[in-house]
Amino acid sequence: SQVHIGNTTFTFDNPEKAQKYAEKYAKKKGLTVQKNGDVWTVE
């Protein structure tokens, strides 16, 4: 599972961890999370 934030990609061994990280980061920065398969993009 991966989380894309700008030009940075974070890889997680667990989809739940990836989703939590993406949502927490997005909330903190006032951004949105797009999910595509097991990839979350914060923008």
Rank of each mutant, 00 (worst) to 15 (best):
S1V: 14
S1K: 08
S1R: 10
S1P: 14
S1N: 11
Q2R: 13
Q2C: 15
Q2S: 09
Q2G: 05
Q2L: 12
V3A: 03
V3T: 01
H4G: 02
H4L: 12
H4I: 15
H4W: 08
H4P: 04
H4K: 15
H4E: 05
I5W: 04
I5G: 00
I5V: 08
I5S: 02
G6D: 06
G6W: 11
G6N: 09
G6E: 08
G6I: 05
N7H: 13
N7S: 12
N7W: 13
N7R: 12
N7C: 15
N7I: 07
T8Y: 15
T8S: 11
T8P: 01
T8K: 15
T8E: 10
T8Q: 14
T9L: 14
T9Q: 07
T9Y: 15
T9F: 15
T9G: 02
F10T: 03
F10L: 14
F10W: 10
F10G: 01
F10M: 10
F10Y: 13
F10V: 09
F10P: 01
F10S: 03
F10A: 03
F10Q: 04
T11H: 14
T11P: 03
T11G: 04
T11C: 15
T11Q: 10
T11K: 10
T11M: 13
F12D: 01
F12H: 02
F12N: 01
F12A: 01
F12R: 00
F12V: 00
F12Q: 03
D13T: 10
D13L: 11
D13H: 06
D13G: 08
D13Q: 11
D13M: 10
D13F: 09
D13I: 08
D13K: 10
D13V: 08
N14D: 14
N14A: 09
N14I: 07
N14Y: 06
N14F: 04
N14Q: 07
N14M: 07
N14L: 08
N14P: 01
N14S: 14
P15F: 06
P15E: 09
P15Y: 07
P15S: 07
P15I: 05
P15R: 04
E16P: 01
E16S: 10
E16W: 12
K17I: 12
K17H: 12
K17A: 14
K17Q: 14
K17D: 15
A18Y: 01
A18W: 03
A18T: 00
A18I: 01
A18S: 01
A18P: 03
A18Q: 00
Q19K: 13
Q19E: 09
Q19V: 05
Q19I: 06
Q19D: 02
Q19C: 11
Q19S: 06
Q19A: 12
Q19L: 09
K20W: 13
K20T: 09
K20Q: 13
K20D: 12
K20V: 09
K20M: 12
Y21W: 15
Y21P: 00
Y21S: 00
Y21K: 00
Y21Q: 02
Y21L: 06
Y21H: 04
A22P: 00
A22G: 01
A22M: 05
A22V: 07
A22K: 02
A22L: 08
A22Y: 05
A22D: 00
A22N: 00
A22E: 00
A22F: 06
E23I: 08
E23S: 05
E23M: 09
E23W: 08
E23K: 08
E23L: 14
K24P: 00
K24Y: 14
K24I: 10
K24T: 13
K24V: 09
Y25S: 01
Y25D: 00
Y25T: 01
Y25E: 05
A26C: 05
A26Q: 02
K27S: 08
K27E: 08
K27R: 10
K27I: 05
K27Y: 07
K28T: 08
K28Q: 12
K28I: 12
K28H: 08
K28V: 10
K28C: 15
K29R: 13
K29G: 04
K29V: 06
K29H: 15
K29N: 12
K29E: 06
K29D: 03
K29C: 15
G30N: 05
G30H: 05
G30C: 09
G30F: 05
G30A: 04
G30R: 05
G30I: 03
G30Y: 03
G30W: 03
L31E: 00
L31F: 13
L31A: 05
L31C: 12
L31S: 01
T32S: 09
T32Q: 08
T32P: 04
T32A: 08
T32F: 06
T32R: 10
T32D: 04
V33I: 09
V33M: 08
V33N: 02
Q34M: 13
Q34G: 05
Q34N: 12
K35T: 04
K35E: 01
K35G: 04
K35M: 06
K35H: 08
N36V: 14
N36K: 11
N36S: 11
N36R: 12
N36E: 10
N36A: 09
N36I: 15
N36Y: 11
N36M: 13
G37C: 03
G37E: 05
G37Y: 03
G37D: 06
G37P: 02
G37Q: 05
G37F: 04
G37I: 03
G37K: 05
G37N: 06
G37V: 04
G37W: 03
D38R: 08
D38W: 09
D38S: 10
D38I: 06
D38H: 07
D38N: 14
D38P: 06
V39R: 04
V39W: 06
V39H: 11
V39A: 08
W40C: 05
W40P: 00
W40H: 02
W40M: 00
W40K: 00
T41Y: 14
T41G: 01
T41D: 05
T41V: 14
T41C: 15
T41S: 07
T41A: 04
V42N: 01
V42A: 02
V42G: 00
V42K: 00
V42Y: 04
V42D: 01
V42S: 03
E43N: 10
E43A: 13
E43H: 12
E43W: 11
